[in-house]
């Protein structure tokens, strides 16, 4: 079955000033249309490098990324990025509405269509009234919502999110997590979500890919068999949640210690957790 986003044998080596650093060794996985997949791993394991290669912002040294059958060689119009540093990603000289609209102008859409998309996107992140404000007039959480709205309005096939909530406070983070899940369920977009927060990965994802330490490979693929209706209060105290997060935590600790990857990893092999 053809996955929407297919990553095979991704390898990225940084060469510079006499040193050769293999950030990503061999990454192979696939994402079906409409899935919400979380990537989690120890710090410094090249999560951002991986995401940028998938998104076409970095050229891989080897391996290939395919989006709906087409190889990715530069940022494709089918992908949208949400960066961690929202303050530096939104353009401070434009108002919120203009920020969301700018990428649409590149797509060559008509004015009416653009306004429609912008209004719709801002409404779905709960910022329908903020269109005339400047980004720096808004709080951190609201700015990240604007970034998400900008990505939504772009109507991408895949949404790539690079630790988007690492720089906001815990309560805002909880709201934003629910926002992402809500948007995902409503619109059925495909999301690849990178995070270092294990709880967040398990709470959000349908599937969690645990990465090893650098040089990075996929250590394990985990299906999150929690119910689809999740909320911050109940899901996080569910026993199954605790089991899953403990397992992921152990995997990451093992990854940091450098213990070998358990068993072969196959791109479409989903393994349900059965221990403990």
């Amino acid at each position: 079955m053809g996955a929407l986003l297919d990553v095979s044998g991704l390898n990225k080596v940084y060469e510079g000033s006499g040193r050769r650093v293999e950030a990503v060794r061999d990454l192979t996985f696939g994402i079906e249309a409409g899935e919400l997949v979380c990537l989690v791993g120890p710090s410094g394991c090249g999560k951002t490098t991986l995401l940028k290669c998938v998104g076409g912002l970095l050229a891989p040294t080897a391996g290939q990324v395919t989006l709906a059958g087409r190889p990715v060689s530069g940022p494709p119009p089918g992908m949208a990025f949400v960066f961690q540093e929202y303050g530096r990603s939104l353009f401070p000289w434009m108002r919120v509405g203009d920020n969301v609209e700018l990428p649409l102008k590149q797509k060559g859409l008509s004015k009416d269509r653009r306004h429609e998309l912008v209004a719709d996107a801002l409404r779905s992140v709960g910022l329908a009234d903020a269109s005339g404000a400047y980004p720096w007039q808004l709080s951190g959480g609201m700015q990240q919502r604007v970034a998400i709205a900008r990505a939504l309005a772009y109507e991408p096939e895949v949404l790539l999110m690079d630790e988007p909530f690492a720089a906001v406070d815990a309560q805002t983070r909880a709201d934003l997590e629910d926002l992402v899940r809500g948007l995902w369920r409503e619109r059925g977009i495909t999301i690849l979500f990178v995070t270092h927060d294990i709880d967040e990965a398990v709470y959000l994802g349908q599937r969690v890919l645990v990465l090893s330490a650098s040089p990075t490979v996929v250590r394990e693929q985990l299906t999150i068999d929690l119910p689809d209706e999740r909320d911050q209060l109940h899901t996080r105290v569910a026993p199954r949640f605790a089991e899953l997060r403990t397992h992921v935590y152990e995997q990451i600790q093992a990854a940091k210690r450098g213990t070998p990857v358990p068993g072969p990893t196959d791109s479409v092999e989903d393994r349900a957790v059965d221990k403990k």
């Binding site: 940028k52 912002l57 949208a80 990025f81 700018l102 990428p103 590149q106 797509k107 772009y154």
Partner: peptide, 16 residues
């Protein structure tokens, strides 16, 4: 650099 990458990821190049 974050702003430059954002622009690149949305295909904003050249004169624009």
């Amino acid at each position: 650099p974050v702003m430059a990458e954002t622009a690149r990821s949305y295909g904003i190049t050249g004169a624009a």
